[in-house]
Computed example of a mutant assay.
Amino acid sequence: MYKTVLILDDDKAILDIFTLVLEASGYLVHVSETSHDIINKVELTNPDVIIMDNWIPDIGGIEATNLLKKHKNFKHIPVIYCSANSDIAYLAEKAGAQAYLSKPFDLNDLENLVAKMLEPINAV
């Protein structure tokens, strides 16, 4: 069964890269260029992991991740925070994300981090 990744980023080139790499690794990928309806997006896509951009419109990555983590049905979904900010570790922690990926990123790091976030799911 395919694992699903939801990617929220307003940069179409980044979305294309994420999609190409993750689909080639066997994941089902859904993308969004906005974050204001994060709960609806998660309900529709049922992701196993989420990659969240810091600067995504309309409410931003921190608020979108906080909304997700406060939701009783979705707080368990691991979030990988993604940003070019130098303080990405702090931003990821503030958002409540389980991991972070600095932009620009290495494609192997992307694949490895997504796989790592899914390890508990794969072990079941």
Score class of each variant (00 low, 15 high):
23 E>C: 06
23 E>Y: 02
24 A>I: 01
24 A>Q: 06
24 A>F: 04
25 S>R: 13
25 S>N: 14
25 S>K: 14
26 G>C: 01
27 Y>H: 05
27 Y>D: 05
27 Y>L: 07
28 L>R: 14
28 L>F: 12
28 L>D: 11
28 L>G: 01
29 V>S: 11
29 V>M: 05
32 S>C: 02
32 S>N: 08
32 S>Y: 00
32 S>A: 15
33 E>C: 03
33 E>M: 10
33 E>Q: 14
33 E>F: 04
33 E>D: 15
33 E>P: 05
33 E>L: 05
34 T>A: 06
34 T>F: 12
34 T>S: 11
34 T>D: 11
35 S>G: 13
35 S>F: 00
36 H>C: 13
36 H>I: 05
36 H>Y: 13
36 H>W: 08
37 D>G: 03
37 D>N: 15
38 I>W: 08
38 I>H: 00
38 I>K: 00
39 I>T: 13
39 I>E: 09
39 I>N: 03
40 N>W: 00
40 N>S: 12
40 N>Q: 12
40 N>I: 03
40 N>H: 13
41 K>P: 00
41 K>M: 13
41 K>V: 00
43 E>A: 11
43 E>T: 10
43 E>K: 14
43 E>D: 12
44 L>G: 08
44 L>D: 11
44 L>K: 14
44 L>M: 14
44 L>T: 07
44 L>H: 07
46 N>R: 12
47 P>Y: 01
47 P>N: 10
47 P>R: 07
48 D>G: 09
48 D>L: 04
49 V>F: 06
49 V>T: 15
49 V>D: 03
49 V>C: 14
49 V>S: 10
50 I>Y: 11
50 I>Q: 09
51 I>R: 04
51 I>L: 15
51 I>Y: 07
51 I>Q: 08
52 M>P: 03
53 D>G: 09
53 D>K: 07
53 D>P: 01
53 D>L: 04
54 N>S: 12
55 W>K: 13
56 I>S: 02
57 P>N: 10
57 P>E: 10
58 D>W: 00
58 D>K: 14
58 D>Q: 09
58 D>M: 07
60 G>K: 06
60 G>L: 03
60 G>W: 04
61 G>S: 02
61 G>E: 05
62 I>T: 04
62 I>G: 03
63 E>N: 08
63 E>M: 09
63 E>Y: 08
63 E>S: 08
64 A>K: 00
64 A>N: 01
64 A>M: 01
65 T>Q: 07
65 T>D: 05
65 T>P: 02
65 T>E: 09
65 T>G: 10
66 N>K: 15
66 N>G: 07
66 N>T: 12
66 N>I: 14
67 L>F: 15
67 L>D: 15
68 L>E: 05
68 L>K: 05
69 K>I: 06
69 K>Y: 13
69 K>L: 07
70 K>D: 12
70 K>F: 07
70 K>W: 03
